[in-house]
Design a protein around this nucleic acid. Structure first.
Ligand code: ZN
Length: 358
DNA sequence: CGTCTTTGACCAGCGC
DNA sequence: GCGCTGGTCAAAGACG
């Protein structure tokens, strides 16, 4: 009895403490995220030359292969200790970017060696899979009161398994397709619908972030709606949904079983609204995408997630337009492109509509 | 009191 | 058909 109360009190304290840490750390986390994506956007500017040489390891799943949605096959790849995934050290290619990273990150994370590793392998079937991992190792993470926050980030395009046009909103749209109504409905054409729905997955984009906190702040408000134990992992996976009632974006957050410090955040869907700003009252300032490139070498402001959104957007455009040509499947590239037009694309979930008319 | 988290139950897809 | 797994729902509770 007494102990339970005590326990609860302790948990409460921990929670409060965690929140403080979260707010502090997530900002740092996004900072490094910005930095990484910065490099990505730079590579995007160079298009094929740089992009292919770097061959960002974006994992593109076959559109017809829905495995990912159920079994997270790509995650096993990602999180598995497949060193061959990052076997090729191309830090020299990125030296410029690293320099920027270094310069800007030093102010935040003291002086720690960087290591950038990129996979150069292209799998012919999946177009241009690419994934980027930056690693910034802290020497004494816990020396200060705040533990080490996000220090390494990887961006992975997880899935474009949609094989139906963007009418897909029927699947994810909570307003139109509440399970209650669906469950009670006579559901005669349901089977067909279900079949169709099955693959109607919004494009998903994942981040691997080295962080002590699970839920990274990204400017949107999320409501947790589920948590499940992850197979072969001691860490659970949390499911979040955007709190905007008209928004269908979801995200999953889990920790890598290989490296407990790595947080894998998967975004799915696209926001139909703007960010709400960071919770600590950091209201977002105006953001002009055109300005983005002009001072992209400067450390992005922590209070403006649109920076990384725009970066993601650029990355996405790069993927869809010049780098990716998914085939190897029955759906064919046309289906993919129709599903993921540049505007709706892989990063659409993070890039607000208002920003996409570039 | 509104918002958010927790958590057990439920459902669908998939492999055997 | 059965069991496993990922994903979601929703009631209850916690929190500010
Ligand atoms: Zn949203």
């Amino acid at each position: 009895m007494f102990q339970e109360i005590k326990k609860k009190k302790i948990q409460k304290r921990e929670r409060v403490f965690d929140r403080c840490l979260t707010r502090h750390c997530t900002l740092m986390g996004f900072y490094s995220l910005f930095l990484l994506l910065l490099s990505l956007s730079l590579s995007s500017n160079c298009k094929q030359t740089l992009a292919t040489s770097l061959s960002l390891h974006l994992i593109m799943n076959d559109p017809e292969n829905p495995d990912l949605t159920n079994h997270d096959s790509s995650w096993t790849q990602l999180t598995a200790p497949d060193s061959h995934f990052f076997h090729r050290d191309t830090s020299d290619i990125f030296s410029d970017f690293v320099g920027n990273l270094h310069a800007s990150s030093q102010s935040d994370h003291h002086h720690h060696p960087h290591s950038l590793r990129f996979d150069t392998g292209l799998t012919p079937t999946s177009g241009v899979p690419s994934s980027v991992t930056t690693t910034t190792l802290p020497s004494t993470p816990s020396s200060s009161s705040s533990p080490a926050a996000a220090l390494s980030v990887a961006v992975t395009e997880v899935s474009t398994s949609n094989d139906l046009p963007a009418t897909s909103s029927s699947t994810e749209d909570p307003t139109e397709n509440s399970t209650a109504s669906a469950a009670k409905a006579p559901e005669t054409p349901k089977k067909e619908k279900k079949k169709a729905q099955k693959r109607i997955r919004q494009p998903r984009f994942a981040f691997m972030t080295k962080s002590d906190v699970d839920h990274l702040e990204d400017g949107y408000r999320w409501r947790k709606y589920g948590q499940k134990a992850v197979k072969n992992s001691p860490f659970p996976r949390s499911y979040y949904r955007c709190t905007n009632s008209r928004c269908t974006v979801k995200k999953r957050v889990e920790r890598s079983s290989e490296d407990p410090l790595i947080v894998i955040t998967t975004y799915e869907g696209q926001h139909c609204h703007q960010t709400t700003g960071f919770p600590r009252g950091g209201i977002l300032t105006a953001h002009d995408p055109s300005n983005f490139t002009s001072h992209h070498l400067l450390p992005p402001p922590l209070s403006d997630p649109y920076y990384y959104q725009e970066l993601l957007h650029q990355l996405h455009r790069d993927n869809t337009s010049s780098l990716r040509l998914p085939q190897s499947t029955t759906e064919g590239p046309a289906a993919v492109s129709s599903i993921n037009p540049p505007e709706e694309g892989l990063l659409g979930d993070i890039v607000p509509q208002t920003m996409r008319n570039t």
